[in-house]
Design a protein around this nucleic acid. Sequence first.
DNA 1: TATTATAAGTGTTTATTATACACTTATTGA
DNA 2: TCAATAAGTGTATAATAAACACTTATAATA
Lengths: 257, 257
Amino acid sequence: MFKIHFINFFYILVTTSRKLSLVVLGNMNSSLPNTYNSISCIPVAVDCIIFGFHDNQLELLLIHRGFEPEKGKWSLMGGFVQEEEDLDVAASRVLQQLTGLDDIYMEQVNTFGKVTRDPGGRVISVAYYALIRKATYNKRLVEHNNAQWFSLYDLPEMIFDHLEMVEKAIEKLRQKVKTEPIGFNLLPPKFTLPQLQALYEAILNEPIDKRNFRKKIQSLNILEKLDEKDKAHSKKGAYLFRFQEEAFEENSTFNLY
Amino acid sequence: MFKIHFINFFYILVTTSRKLSLVVLGNMNSSLPNTYNSISCIPVAVDCIIFGFHDNQLELLLIHRGFEPEKGKWSLMGGFVQEEEDLDVAASRVLQQLTGLDDIYMEQVNTFGKVTRDPGGRVISVAYYALIRKATYNKRLVEHNNAQWFSLYDLPEMIFDHLEMVEKAIEKLRQKVKTEPIGFNLLPPKFTLPQLQALYEAILNEPIDKRNFRKKIQSLNILEKLDEKDKAHSKKGAYLFRFQEEAFEENSTFNLY
DNA sequence: TATTATAAGTGTTTATTATACACTTATTGA
DNA sequence: TCAATAAGTGTATAATAAACACTTATAATA
């Protein structure tokens, strides 16, 4: 028993009742009016570069690979795109499976498609990065998945091309963070300016002048200064701020260096 | 008769002698030591946003769709990724099929993976842009493919999400052209400064001050001024220049606005 | 309770980069 | 020889980025 999902000149997609799927491919008849030669069907995965920020360090959540090939190495959290699942939805689902988190800021990084990139077989993988607040994820799930946080600048050996994925992700994050207010996704709702500066220093991996930074960030008028202070990190205590999304939508220019 | 390409816990890929392919998918046994649930296999395509520059205009090469669905609309040149073909190679091949050109500057733009993006069936498509010299492509091939050039700022109705692909591509091109010397890929080996300026104006879609542009571009020391003049576009004639790739590799900073 | 140590908070000056702006030159065709 | 066209050239001003050091609040300690 099977169900035909679609059929056209080039391909037929069917699903059997047992959720097994077949894709039947054929060479195109050259009289057909386009340039396709044949259709192959390839497993497509998404891999998540999950960024967190803790102790003034940018961190990545990686899972320990407990099986061959490349047993013992570390890996990005990944999963296959389902037949009836949007690509972006797959990325969110995979993130959710590891962290329990929904509605997280994610960006597509790049698609990796070398035939031999996964020695287990041909898989095309779309890399996404995610910015999460470390306080909010589900610790039990993460433990259950044998996942751990690593400092971005002190990563363990990773499988396949996952290091390349991470490098592309951080590059893209660096670009983005300069022109859009996305860094806040890594901080708690209330944060201090020293924290925010440390975050930018961690992402850009370079020191920033305190006075210049504060001048610049405050000139954007997107921060609401609260009357509370955070005294956890200094005797004096630092004022807490909140990111005003609404204020940003209106004036909506953002440019840090 | 069929050949088993690879087999593991999750999937088996086989090819028959007639070049028909089957991918057999199954739900993962939950005792297996990772987070995957099941593997689906999805047709993956590449679509090429082919940029050319002519008459001070940025242009796109599109093909006329002569069959349903969306017959009569225009489309990016696309094709399916083959089983044993790297993703980047697929993009080059597809470009080559339409233009006859090899060894062309291409960049991956984004991967589009909404389930319903192609009404003919689920296809994940990876968009690439290409920068070609209009003088060099194979006109006969292009004609044979029912392809035509369109001004980027006067595009016809396009199928599916191809307009979105184009928009993302031009956005990415704009970014890239400001920090890397890739614009030269759209110009003949010898070009004039007015031509180069017009190219940047076309890409960025904004006028540029002549003196400021020349000051900046010449300060980069990546152009070799030739003794020849191009008299096709003015009575006075404009000096021809050549891009010195070597000079760029050495000093290797490039920043236009 | 006075002292010390720590991180928060604050302005101004200088350097660099971007922007604005108009006339002269070479050449062809009328 | 005159007119039309596009190429070629430099300077002044504005905006932005970078450099830089002391004061303040507080908790812990002597």
